[in-house]
Computed example of a mutant assay.
Amino acid sequence: MRSRITALFVVLAAVGALVGFPAAAAADPVDLIADPDPFYAAPADVADAANGDVLDSRRVPTSAYPGTDVWQVKFRSTDSADDPIAAVTTVLMPQGRGAGTPLVSYQAIVNALGTKCAPSHGLFSDELIEAPAVYLGMVARGWAVAVPDYLGPTAAYGAARMAGQITLDGVRAVKQFEQLPLRDSPVGLLGYSGGGLATSFAAALAPTYAPDLDIAGIAEGGIPSDLAQIAQNLAYSPLPHPGFGMAMAVALGLEREYPGRFPITPNLNDRGIALRNKMFNECRRSILIDGAFNSARDLSTAASLADTPSAQQVLRENSVTFFDGVPTAPLFVWQGVNDFIAPYQPVADMVDRYCRSGADVVFRGYPAAEHFSATVLGLPEAYLWLDARLRGEPAPSDC
């Protein structure tokens, strides 16, 4: 496992890019492959449960994380249409720790459209490339770490507001889960890139969506905070972009979550349909490799879907830069100034708005860093900052 930790900082995939595809002939949609494991299915009475209520649980026997007890907890949450869903979080609990063990919800970097690629699977394969850092940087520190499947039961990549809701409900579920002594534990949230987007939405939603949660601190970095701007950068760059597969994947994820409002499939040409069908149920490698060096201009024949009112509204609803909520928990935010995936300025503007609204924020903008190197520069300080909050130290602020 240790040999994989370098891959965390080298292979981190671009997350949070969006694209709108122009129109061509419609095509029959590819069916999403639901997870065949019945554990993931929503019970018939899921609507009767409250957000964060535990619906089911199971112990996971594994040797992947020595000295750690691993549980998976299914809980009730809410999707983007405010309908009830069942979601899952995987909890890594250091053996020998008891009541008061800090609980950190880590939102992983999930570059995927397939249900098979969720963290609850990827933690036990090579899909979740930062798994060594989860273990060595967090569990070995003495934290209980919950890793939610924040894309939900349909792997709705890009649905950031739902991701924030699932994140918060996952914390609620773990705190009330009777098999673990975490009810009174201090809580922290942590995420980078796509995980940073889920974390940032959880931070902004928490005061209204989960006011019952007392969150000690939230560390978020590499945030793709303005999805419309990222769509333009990745989908319509002068030359075909190496990260285009992630852009298309997020667009397809939004189509799943917002049927009729973000209609990708009817607006693709034959080449676009072929690429869509190839990646529709796939994980990181397929999306990165098959999608690389494409352009929206080559996959369609008409004007940009991203310019249509419904698509623009979907992008805005899932861009934390434009979300009115202001976190009340202390924040540590880091971003590369030269980030070519998740631009720096919208994050700086978000931090400025938070500061003017009274939030406590430490902001690190790394002048020479882009999306990948910013991870290396910011994550060690994020660990130290979050550890201090979990120990009850007063939060500093740059505001």
Rank of each mutant, 00 (worst) to 15 (best):
Gln72His: 02
Thr62Leu: 13
Ala64Leu: 15
Asn51Ser: 15
Ala81Tyr: 04
Tyr65Lys: 03
Arg59Gln: 13
Ala86Pro: 04
Ser63Arg: 14
Thr78Cys: 10
Val46Gln: 09
Asp82Leu: 06
Val54Gln: 06
Ile85Leu: 13
Gly52Val: 03
Tyr65Asn: 03
Thr68Ile: 10
Ser63Val: 15
Pro36Val: 12
Val91Gly: 01
Asp82Thr: 04
Pro84Val: 01
Gln95Cys: 09
Val54Glu: 01
Thr90Gly: 02
Ser57Cys: 01
Ala50Val: 06
Pro84Arg: 09
Tyr40Arg: 10
Ser57Ile: 00
Pro43Met: 06
Arg76Ile: 01
Val91Met: 00
Val73Asp: 00
Phe39Asn: 01
Asp53Ser: 15
Val54Lys: 03
Ser80Ile: 04
Ala41Asp: 09
Ala81Lys: 14
Leu55Tyr: 03
Phe39Gln: 02
Pro43Tyr: 01
Tyr65Cys: 08
Ala81Asn: 15
Asp45Ser: 11
Gly52Ala: 07
Pro61Met: 11
Arg58Phe: 10
Thr62Val: 11
Val46Asn: 04
Pro38Phe: 04
Asp79Glu: 08
Ser80Val: 14
Thr78Trp: 02
Val70Trp: 09
Pro36Asp: 13
Thr78Ala: 10
Thr78Leu: 04
Pro36Phe: 13
Gly52Asp: 01
Ser63Leu: 14
Ala41Val: 08
Pro94Thr: 10
Asp56Gln: 09
Ser80Lys: 07
Asp45Cys: 07
Ala47Tyr: 07
Gln72Pro: 00
Arg58Pro: 02
Asp83Trp: 03
Gln95Glu: 13
Asp56Leu: 05
Gln72Ala: 05
Asp69Val: 09
Ala81Val: 04
Met93Val: 11
Val60Lys: 06
Ser77Phe: 04
Trp71Gln: 15
Ala50Ser: 12
Val91Tyr: 02
Gly67Ala: 05
Asp53Arg: 09
Pro61Gly: 12
Ser57Gly: 03
